[in-house]
Design a protein around this nucleic acid. Structure first.
Lengths: 211, 211
DNA sequence: GTCTATAAATAGATAGAC
DNA sequence: GTCTATCTATTTATAGAC
């Protein structure tokens, strides 16, 4: 008789949680439009009808994945930032937290990139507010650093782009880089810690440079 | 009687060209899976059957848009780079060319971001070779700069990420930034020239910094 | 909570007339 | 070159049994 094709359920995680995880992976790999609810249910080891038992629709499921993602970053950022924190530490923390979340949730970078490309079409008010809080983190850090004469007056958006851009690209290109030809393989495979340290160094170099 | 809904054709551009342009915009806004051939045809002012007269399929049309995009960058890069070019100039040129192409083809940044998120699922061998040539540009610049003791030995991939990441993010977030709340509007609206200059400065600062 | 069966809509692709 | 009409497959979503 044929071998079991459908993925084995892990009894530890409830059905809802398994559906959520499977959905995050599917949305990351194929985007909202390309995602398929049958495939999500199958990956979670249940029937498609179960997806509609636990969630209202494909769209609301996607919305939950999206909010959870940004909420996790905002929460961790809030937990690791004291009110009077050192501006340079604030910058370092942002880099570290985004990297940690990207490692903890591999679906995070691709989904974020896709959402940017789509002009935030699926971002509801709640989620947008959470994103705003993350942006606020950089803006405050730059502003306070400038006030304390520790930073040059660089446009905060440029600092944000210089941090989030390289990080998202690094994590999201991981599958692509694994497919690099042998000649490029070495040049394209960097340890995460080195990338984190580099992005931190560059951000602070930009803010603290004399010229 | 109702006003003409279907977009007026511009007689200057041939049907094939109008379809191509409409497709690029549709793919940028909705991705490959989310794109709709009826909508593409309608935006081009023709019937869907015309799309299949001029192109084999939705997939091959997307493939052409993708290749054209990277080919344009590679061509312009080749045209503007002399064999023994100054390493710092090579870096500046890369930044400038990507920015120019992003302005000339607004569909370029979102499609590139989406393709990264998708792990290059739609990138064929030809297109991949063109992308390789673009990457090669940075790698050569860094290598020669280091050899001439003008640059520190920074990982070329990190330089690439530091250039392309912020640029793509800046251009692709344009629609998102236009939707920013009034309080953030000023902070989030930067002139392109300032962004280009900043990315160039940061890249060279990273490569030339003493520490 | 979980499944089978199916409704209903969407969308890629083509045949054939003009 | 261009259009109308249509075929066909896919896919979101639900009704109803267990």
């Amino acid at each position: 008789m044929p071998r079991q094709v459908r993925r084995r359920r892990t009894p530890e995680a409830g059905t809802r949680e398994r559906l959520f995880a499977a959905a995050a992976a599917e949305f990351a790999a194929r985007g909202f439009a390309g995602a398929n609810v049958d495939r999500i249910a199958d990956a979670a080891g249940v029937n498609k009808a179960m997806l509609y038992y636990h969630f209202d629709s494909k769209a609301s499921l996607y919305g939950e994945v999206l909010r959870d993602m940004f909420q996790a970053v905002a929460d961790r950022l809030a937990a690791r930032t004291a009110p009077g924190a050192d501006p340079a530490d604030r910058i370092r923390t942002l880099v570290e937290v985004i990297a940690q979340e990207a490692l903890a949730r591999p679906h995070f970078p691709p989904i974020w990139l896709r959402e940017i490309a789509e002009g935030g079409a699926h971002v509801d008010r709640d989620t947008m507010a959470v994103v705003g809080r993350i942006l606020q983190h950089v803006f405050v850090a730059v502003e306070e650093g400038v006030k304390a004469r520790r930073f040059r007056p660089v446009q905060p958006l440029l600092v944000q782009l210089g941090i989030v851009g390289p990080l998202l690209m690094f994590f999201a290109t991981a599958p692509l880089r694994r497919k690099a030809p042998p000649g490029m393989a070495r040049a394209v495979d960097l340890p995460v810690d080195e990338v984190i340290a580099h992005v931190q160094r560059v951000a602070l170099l930009t803010l603290e440079a004399k010229r």
